[in-house]
């Protein structure tokens, strides 16, 4: 038996909207610790890891860990029917093949419920090791989204290099090249505008820009985004969902190699 009541119901929709273009079907795992979702895109290049803690819910009951496979597109359709201030309650039976979403308006004058069919999804569950990252950059989420958007108009591969001078995003394409450098800024008036760079070792990685751009769909979830990088390992792009949990994206780097890329990187 699962029952979970979330006052900030719109958060769910934002999470699903952020990931549904990357992954079409996914298992949402529920246990006494909360909700989690882990899924890879079909090309196995990026991974989504989302966790919503049980204590983020006003009421949370999960008798037995369960895995609910669903089409994220369909889930998004259902969640779209919730008002932005609605309280969302999820209910599912242990052996059921559906999950029920109940939306209650704050004034309690409207209650709707939707039953979504579950599906069997065969997915591997991956262990994500904890890593000491060489560079961790925390920047305003909006700034990250803007950089991705701007660079996408120029090229499709980005080099992110973190040095003591700052974090530089570089791309090139037929049109030309583009560089955006972000520097540490801990003095901004508003906390939301601050950028913090924690650098242990300089690092530079190359990524397919379209994935990073897709991650930026999570911008509404948090004020800040954290990019954590270590040489030769996937970058972690984390949106901390306030008081609730996190949405993390991992993206495998591209191979930087002259003889492979040379032709690709036509100036």
């Amino acid at each position: 038996m699962l029952e979970a009541r979330l006052v900030q119901g719109s958060m769910l929709r934002k999470v699903v909207d952020a990931v549904k273009d990357l992954v079409s079907d996914a298992n949402i795992d529920v246990s006494s610790s909360g909700f989690s979702l882990q899924a890879m895109d079909t090309s196995h290049v990026s991974l989504i890891a989302m966790h919503l803690r049980a204590d983020a819910f006003e009421h949370f009951r999960c008798d037995r860990p369960m895995s609910m496979g669903m089409s994220l597109a369909n889930l998004a359709k259902v969640l779209k029917c919730a008002g932005s201030d609605d309280i969302v309650t999820l209910k599912a039976n242990d052996d059921g093949d559906t999950v029920t979403f109940m939306f209650e308006s704050p004034k309690e004058d409207r209650v709707s419920d939707f039953e979504l069919k579950l599906m069997d999804i065969d997915s591997e569950h991956l262990g994500i090791p904890d890593t000491d990252y060489c560079a961790t950059v925390t920047m305003p989420a909006g700034e990250y989204a803007r950089i991705c958007k701007d660079l996408s108009s120029i090229g499709d591969t980005v080099v992110i290099s973190a040095t003591k001078d700052g974090v530089k995003f570089t791309t090139s394409g037929d049109v030309g090249t583009a560089n955006v450098t972000v520097r540490q800024n801990t003095t901004a008036d508003k906390k939301e505008d601050q950028t913090i760079i924690d650098l242990k070792e300089p690092v530079a990685l190359t990524f397919a820009l379209r994935y990073l751009t897709s991650f930026a769909k999570a911008t509404p979830l948090a004020t800040h985004v954290t990019l954590s990088m270590t040489r030769e390992l996937p970058v972690m792009v984390e949106y901390a969902i306030q008081d609730m949990g996190h949405l993390r994206f991992y993206l495998a780097p591209k191979i930087e190699d002259e003889d492979m890329e040379g032709e690709d990187e036509a100036p």
Partner: peptide, 21 residues
């Protein structure tokens, strides 16, 4: 891998975990 060595191999970064059950 040594920092100098360029690694061209595509890798898998994560391992499979047994299902939660």
């Amino acid at each position: 891998m040594g920092p100098g060595a360029k690694q061209r191999d595509i890798s898998s970064f994560f391992s499979v975990k047994p299902k939660p059950e």
